[in-house]
Design a binder for these strands. Sequence first.
DNA 1: CGATGACTTGAACGCCATCAATCGCTGTGG
DNA 2: CCACAGCGATTGATGGCGTTCAAGTCATCG
Lengths: 208, 208
Amino acid sequence: MLRKLVSQAKISSAECGYRKGNEIFGQAEPADYIYQVIEGAVRSHKLLSDGRRQIGAFHLPRDIFGLENGDFHRFTAEAIIDTITCVVKRQSLERVARADPAMVRSLLTMTTDNLQQVEKHILLLGRKTSQERVAAFLLEMHGRLAAADVMALPMSRRDIADYLGLTLETVSRMLSEFHRKGYLRFLNARQIVVLSVAGLAEQAELDL
Amino acid sequence: MLRKLVSQAKISSAECGYRKGNEIFGQAEPADYIYQVIEGAVRSHKLLSDGRRQIGAFHLPRDIFGLENGDFHRFTAEAIIDTITCVVKRQSLERVARADPAMVRSLLTMTTDNLQQVEKHILLLGRKTSQERVAAFLLEMHGRLAAADVMALPMSRRDIADYLGLTLETVSRMLSEFHRKGYLRFLNARQIVVLSVAGLAEQAELDL
DNA sequence: CGATGACTTGAACGCCATCAATCGCTGTGG
DNA sequence: CCACAGCGATTGATGGCGTTCAAGTCATCG
C-alpha cells in the first residue's frame, strides 16, 4: 500500500537492507522514516528495564511499520532474518498528505487496521490460555505466509513466546501437543505444515 | 476534541444518556455513531464464547469512543454508571472529512493516540506481574480522574480485573498490599487517596 | 568430529486462579 | 430501629497452569 502511495504520489523512496538481528530503529528514537517490508521479516518490541520483552507485531513482506503520530518510535524494530525494506521519509509523506486528503485517508485506514490487530491481541494476552494463544498464532501465520501450504516461520520460539506472552518452553510444548494431535507436521522446527486448520481453530477459541 | 470538531464544522450532534449497566453499542453492530463521554464512565470489552471478558479501555469524560474504520464496532460498550454522551452520526463526520483534510488529520491523530494506549497495554498484559498491573492501573486512573486528590473509581473490582487480565481477588489483594505499604488510603472501596505516587511508580516497573 | 545454538522434554516450583467463608455497606420491610 | 437480604469487596485455603530449572536432542558449522 505504501508502495502504491509512493508511486502514485511523487515521494522519493529508497530500498534499504538489514542483516539478521540488526536494529532498524530503536524505541524513543526520532521517527524520521516509514518502512515497508519488501523481503524478509521484522519484529517490533518493547522492553522492560529488567529485560522482559513484549513483541507487538511481526512484519512480513508488504507490511508497513514505523508509522508514528508523535515524533518518536514507540517500538524497537529488528530484522529477524536478512531483510530488504522500502524506506520513505516521513516529512515528504506528510508534505504530500497536507495537500492530498486521499493520502491522509489511506494513512488513517492503515492505522485503524493496525489498531484492530492490536485490539485482537489484547484479548489474546489478557484472557486466552497458552493453548489458545499458540493455536491463534499458527492460524495467523498460516494465513500470512502459507506459501505452497508449508509455513516457513522466520522467527525463533523465543520470538513467538515474547509475542504471545509465554515462555519458549510453553510454546514448544504446545506445538508438540498439536503435533501429537495430528494438526501439524514438522519438516523441521521452523518448517511446519498445517494439516488441520479446523483442529487449530477448535483450540483457538473464536472471538469477534 | 470531537466537541471542538463538531462545533467548528457543521455537524449535527445530540446528547444521549444511558443508565448504569446499559449497552451503548454491541460488538459487530453497525458503527453508525461516534461518541464522546460528557459525564459518567464507559467500558469497552470483547467476550469469548465461554464468558471470559477483556476490557479494552475505560472511557471517562472528554474521551471519544466508537470510532471505527470498518462498518462494525469491534467492542461492546456499556455505561458503568449513569452516563451522558455526545453522539455524532458517522456519515456526517465522513461527509465533512471528505472535504476537510484537517478533519481527517484530527481523526488520524485520535486514532494514533488510541493505538499508543493500546500498545502500552499490550506490554502490561503480556509481561507484567499482577503487582505491576494494579500499580499501573492506579497511576493511570490517578492521572485521569484525581479530582481534589481523591480518586473516585466508577468501576468494580471485576471491571478492573478484566481490564488488567487478572481476577477480582488478585486485584483486591494487591490493593490491600498497597494499603498496607502506606501507598493508599481508602475512604471506601471505590474512593481511594493515593498517598505515594512514587511508591506506586516503583512497583509499576517503568517502560518506554 | 566437537562446539555451538535452537529446540524439546522432564521435574519441581510459584504465581495467580479457584473455591469458599466472611465482612461491610446499602436498602427494604417488619 | 433493627433484622436481614443482597451485592461488592476482602481474606483465607487449596490447586493448577505456566514458569523455572535442568537435561537431553538435533542440526549446522568450524
